[in-house]
Design a binder for these strands. Structure first.
Lengths: 110, 110
DNA sequence: CCCACGCATCGACGTGTGTCAAATTAGATG
DNA sequence: CATCTAATTTGACACACGTCGATGCGTGGG
């Protein structure tokens, strides 16, 4: 069982082309300063969620641009949003973040 | 001391713009399937290092393209290379990888 | 019913990125 | 020095990406 979970661990065994194809886009999604901050802002916001109006103020960027970055994060599976009344609240998907952290974790699961 | 190391932890406190600007490029570097596999191949190769000729065979890509991706990884601080005779050997810089993993780690350092 | 507001989508623009072939550098070997 | 091999650099190309203004869509309030 020592190899359990190795297939997604970068340092454990060589990443297959297929794994790389699914993992890379997620890293790519957080490979932008604005999206990295968005993710952090959402994660750290009170209640674990933030509406778009809470986020746009933190950047000197237009609304459409923020919306675009949120879409990229959403399509990468890193966040999810739900509408409540006029506002749309986003929260982090912890599994996705954990998958990333695990893939970078040092070898030898246990 | 409970906040020690928080400034680079995504889930601990909101990432400053400055931190995001230095962290994002590194994630961006591994946000490509080829580079992700290259990093993994180097890390998992016998002796912890691999020469370029060990790597090119794993892809259906031209030499210059592999060389380009290695340069991106190198400039992101993720790998370093040294020449020994005709060959150039690359190895992973563990501190860089640990910095990434830490930034994704769950909140509360200790 | 209509308007105001929050947010997303669309279309366009300049810039960045992945890829290759061709040319170049650096070391080894004759 | 000539030459072969390993790897990088350069130049070119198509395509993807970040950004914005204009437009569209839901929702709640007069």
């Amino acid at each position: 069982m020592s190899n359990e979970g190795c297939t997604t661990r970068l340092l454990c065994e060589p990443l297959s082309a297929a794994r790389a194809e699914e993992l890379a886009p997620v890293f790519k999604a957080i490979g932008d300063p604005v999206r990295l901050r968005l993710l952090s802002l959402i994660a750290c916001h009170a209640g674990g969620e933030a509406c778009v109006c809470d986020l746009t103020g933190a950047f000197e960027l237009s609304g459409p641009t923020i919306s675009h970055h949120l879409k990229v994060l959403r399509e990468a599976g890193l966040i999810e949003g739900s509408r409540r009344g006029t506002w749309i609240y986003y929260r982090v998907r912890p599994e996705a973040l954990r998958l990333l952290a695990d893939s970078l974790a040092p070898a030898v699961p246990a």
